[in-house]
Amino acid sequence: MLGQQLANGLILGATYALFALGFTLMFGVIRVINLVYGFYFTAGAFIALYLTRNLGWPMAVAFPAAAIASGVMAIGIDGLLLTRLRRVGAPELASLMVTLGAVLALYATATALLGPDIKRFPASVIGAEAMEFAAIRITQAQVLILLATIVLVGGLLALMHGTRLGLALRAMAENPDAAGLMGIDTIRLAALVSFISGALAGAGGVLIGLNFNAIQPYMGEAMMLRGFVVIIVGGLGDIRGALIAGLLLGIVEVLTAGYIASGLKEAVAFAILVAVLWSRPAGLFGRAVTRRA
């Protein structure tokens, strides 16, 4: 029983980590708190739903396609909203207000167009068969979640620490002006960061959609609250911290639901946030820096 709970928590936490990674990457490199981010999560889920249900694509193709489409959408929306704010050197509060307004408008529009009701992937897409390892039952969807998280997180870490582009991103995270003096086009890199983080959010949306098989326009909003918990507990801009905090949050939620009461899982998550901030204001892992990952 405990083993099963831990496995479920780990898988849920993996999607939280995946989602929070994009959020923290964007904050770490571009230094904006982008509340539209949650919408890319919703977008990813709906795009995958459309591709599988309406076009009959297999999930293996629809999943990466939805992630890429969410990333492209993020380039457009972030570029429109944030480029101007950065150019005029607007304070961080301005990006918070602008992206808050934008994301509420986007959710409301999506609800008007798609309807507020919960939608589900076709049964054929989900893969109902489950596997059993040492009395722990894991569905195909959960295997996909785990694999996708490992691949995407591994890919992100390899990009940040093993490539020239990652070096430029870490330089930009630390000092955008000095990065510009090196010949790095910081606006183009900001667009790349939008793409990567949008794609991670979109991927998270598809995976959570699969995990709970429930898709609705405001699903990104609930996720954003968890995203905040994860990146604040993990340390703003800290990739490694987001990964660990995401996994922990998933496990804590599942254990709370399993052993205490399912209705309490959010309360416990936010109590942890307050407790961490109260005792360690810079997050669990000390300083918040993307480049340390």
Binding site: R164, L167, A168, R170, A171, E174, N175, A178, A179, M182, I184, V289, R291, R292
Partner: peptide, 13 residues
């Protein structure tokens, strides 16, 4: 200088 990056990485940049 990029304080969190190594000397070699700073030069590479």
């Amino acid at each position: 200088v990029f304080a969190e990056l190594t000397v070699a990485e700073n030069l590479a940049l």
